[in-house]
Design a protein around this nucleic acid. Structure first.
Lengths: 352, 352
DNA sequence: GCGCGTTCAGAAAGCGCTTTCTGATGTACC
DNA sequence: GGTACATCAGAAAGCGCTTTCTGAACGCGC
């Protein structure tokens, strides 16, 4: 047997390793590593040789080996309910952007609103030693779920993992970006009162979601301050989706009396509501004014364009990613509140 | 010094390792590994002890160590242009779904249409030893780019990586899901001819994109077969976005004569076009009929609902992920063609 | 000219797993 | 009763890196 047979060359194996680069450059493993990572000063001529060898062999470091040896990874995990929800899509845009700026790879998981799946994903991300885990969207108000989630998250944070959330409070005491749902909804209510409305309806999602309950409370609270009540039959609960909005609006139309103005707690539901109104021959804003919340991009292109509370979705994504990448604040979690701004468009008008 | 001091317990270190589990269960590392992976038969009582220890310590395997030792990973990479594009969002939904079924974690990268970034991401995914890489959306018709891309992809495939693409042919000879853009656009053209239209306009994206050129060719080809030509001034090129559609439609309205029917090569552009028409007091379909392509969810909720060629976005995502997870076909790439279906809605009507 | 502190390359020890190899134990057969 | 053959647990060798430790080479002051 020859030397060559005992020490296979790069071509014989699957990957080009740092070892191959070092051999090709005629330096040690350590030196090659130092050059490629810029970890320490290396004599210029050796540097050049390593760089040349690396390029010649088109070396790609094994991220797993790096992660293992240096106990740090370059990926972050993001958990959301549904990638195809425009609200999340807007946020994701910002998340991706900031992640890219930091050279981070994003591992994205869709739970499709299954709590068990959410916990499972956290475990997977933990196994991947993700630098940070982002939870986007309301959590579940469920004792068992909260306990299981904490059981995954606590050890993760204790071992240096970072957690940041968007839109959920309660149980989790971690860094958070919190849209001012209550205040935004209250502002919207006041704007609608200013238009002259006194009869309101609300299309709401599952009240267990903090996003829903905050917006609902903010809206009805501001109305109450003005001495205006919303009858229970004008508050319709449905799924947190376009079809949920459609169903809720349809049901609202079946009530004895119609409000002059309807608030859907999310734009996505408002889109469904608008379709329901159209299908039932109810003109917006002629017969009923309609407003949403979030300002997802499409709503300005609806007919009529939708009045809503604008949230800077992309920026929220950037900020929550930013929180997660920042050094953890000692002993207390950062709360980054972001305000919504009422945008009046043609879907709302003074009542007839 | 005591034994304990020399061999730190789990609590002293960052993570619970398999070593800890093995020690706690009183078995060897190998046995613990075999139990947790079900790799081999292990005596029942030992099995139980390992499982119990693992649960008690809430052990999470280090995915990097596993990947390194077993030379296989449980993640796939997906590269798209923009997560917030509804077309991609729909596809992503299917991708996520199938990935979840296979216990795969998805690493998602947004290129924001920057070719350099796309190549950089492939390198990162390669470094992560992603099981497969999915390229979603048209590639770039650029020699340099093609060469660089091939330089990354070839070694990746040669070392066992799988590549699958959605919507791009040319240069890359890999497994692909190909929407029948040409045929779909031709079907649409015929349907529009049937409505009685003879004067057409087209709002198109950059022609270098195969998606664009196929749809354009299919559309104009079918018209030509019927003896109908489209004057050059009625074909307007713009960015592949909502705003691009708006701009293109606005420009079209400036032309000497107006077509009676406009085809936007994507729904996203059609959304912009619809807004432009509305802003210019052009009624749809009264003055001009408008049709798109893709059938993104929102278009049925526009006013008027948009005629389009429906593509099963979610299913396409499932299929492209499926291709990537399948064993590679020997020596030839699989092409999975998916047909589009013309859906006539209220945005098109016979010309006046 | 000798001892000292620097500077920087190389040797080697892991990181936390998987998997091959080795060896002990038990069973079957002659 | 002894040899042959399974069966299955443990020892140990990596996987491809990073990083500490070691030591050679050099420049400096006395």
């Amino acid at each position: 047997m020859t030397e060559a047979a005992e020490e296979p060359r790069a071509a014989d194996r699957a990957y080009v390793t740092l070892q191959d680069v070092a051999r090709d450059a005629g330096v040690s493993l350590a030196t090659a590593s130092r050059v490629l990572n810029g970890t320490a000063q290396v004599r210029a001529d050796l540097r050049e040789r390593v760089l040349a060898a690396s390029a010649r062999l088109s070396y790609t470091p094994n991220a797993h080996a790096q992660a293992l040896a240096s106990a740090s990874s370059t990926s972050v995990g993001v958990i959301c309910h549904d990638v195809s929800d425009p609200y999340f899509a807007g946020v994701a845009r910002g998340v991706m952007h900031t992640a890219a700026e930091h050279g981070m790879l994003v591992m994205l998981a869709s739970t499709f609103r299954d709590p068990a799946r959410e916990i499972e994903y956290v475990a997977m991300l933990r196994a991947q030693r993700a630098r940070a885990i982002l939870l986007i969207g309301s959590g579940f108000e469920d004792r068992d779920w909260e306990r299981s989630m904490a059981a995954e998250l606590d050890p993760y944070e204790r071992t240096g993992g970072r957690v940041a959330v968007l839109s959920r409070h309660r149980s989790l005491k971690v860094d958070a970006v919190l849209p001012q749902n209550r205040e935004g909804a209250a502002d919207l209510a006041r704007a609608l009162l200013d238009l002259g409305h006194r009869d309101f309806g609300v299309l709401t999602g599952p009240r267990a979601l903090t996003t829903v309950s905050d917006r609902l409370a903010g809206f009805t609270g501001a109305l109450a301050d003005a001495g205006v009540g919303v009858p229970a039959e004008h508050i319709v609960e449905a799924a947190f989706t376009r079809d949920g909005g459609y169903a809720a609006a349809t049901e609202l139309l079946r009530a004895r009396t119609h409000p002059t103005c309807v608030f859907a707690v999310t734009d996505v539901m408002a889109v469904g509501a608008l379709a329901a109104f159209r299908d039932n021959g109810v003109s917006v804003p002629g017969d009923i004014s309609l407003a949403g919340f979030d300002d997802i991009p499409i709503v300005r292109d609806l007919t009529p364009p939708l009045t809503t509370v604008a949230l800077p979705l992309r920026e929220m994504g950037e900020r929550v990613m930013g929180l997660a990448l920042r050094e953890p604040a000692a002993h207390r979690s950062l709360i980054d509140r972001v305000a919504g701004e009422v945008v009046l468009r043609a879907s709302t008008a003074p009542p007839r």
